[in-house]
Amino acid sequence: MEKDQNSSVKPVPVIELRHVDKHFGQLHVLKDINLQVKKGEVVVVIGPSGSGKSTLCRTMNRLEPIDSGEILIDGEVIPEEGRELARLRAKVGMVFQSFNLFAHKTILDNVTMGPVEVLRKSKKEARQEAMELLKRVGVDSQASKVPAQLSGGQQQRVAIARSLAMHPKAILFDEPTSALDPEMIGEVLEVMTRLASEGMTMVVVTHEMNFARRVAHRVLFMDGGSILEENTPEEFFTNPRTQRARDFLNSIQNH
């Protein structure tokens, strides 16, 4: 892209992708992706299914390996393996489509797991902080239950609290509302909106166009493994530059 800047002048981006390529067998799922996410920025990635947007999100935490290129967190290149990889992952939170709470742990223990195991905090301190976080996302009354006893919306809010407990530099959201019943989408988006307004750096893969319009600082439109368009939300939704983006927006409006 035309965004090659001298990094010594500008502040270091929280997440940076340089010439990232990835294949699934024959399928070229990410084609020469270059991207910078600045501190406090909310980037929303949209695109048809199979466009590679979810894969893009997962590579930023290296849950998916890449074939070539590099990914930097806070200016440090994510290595392929080992403790360094774990350390950098801890700096970036991830919220999954299917919540992925630890089924054998209570809600509270789900949130304290990271701080205790990875950040080596004391149990007491971790618990106190976890309760505050649970209160912030509005599920503190469920702290002693296990995930299966909670609604999807509640589980996803716990998952957000679990990410926040690590004090991440950024949080990646991989279609966080796609597995939710319609009446629960609002409560999760509300928490996310609040996070954005508090200045959290966020990368959000979603189909929620209203959320994108309201909250995003930048919208990326992906198709066929490439970022086809990078725009402000106002521009993108009113006057998309590419034909494919227009087609995509039409198809979801007709829906």
Binding site: N61, L63, V92, F96, S98, L101, E117, V118, R162
Partner: peptide, 29 residues
Amino acid sequence: DVGQIEAARSIGMTFSQTIRKVVIPQALR
């Protein structure tokens, strides 16, 4: 659930932590 293993990784747990804290307890239970 594979997702739980990924979730453990995403909060920075190492391989051995993931095995000890997520995989073995669940498999045993």
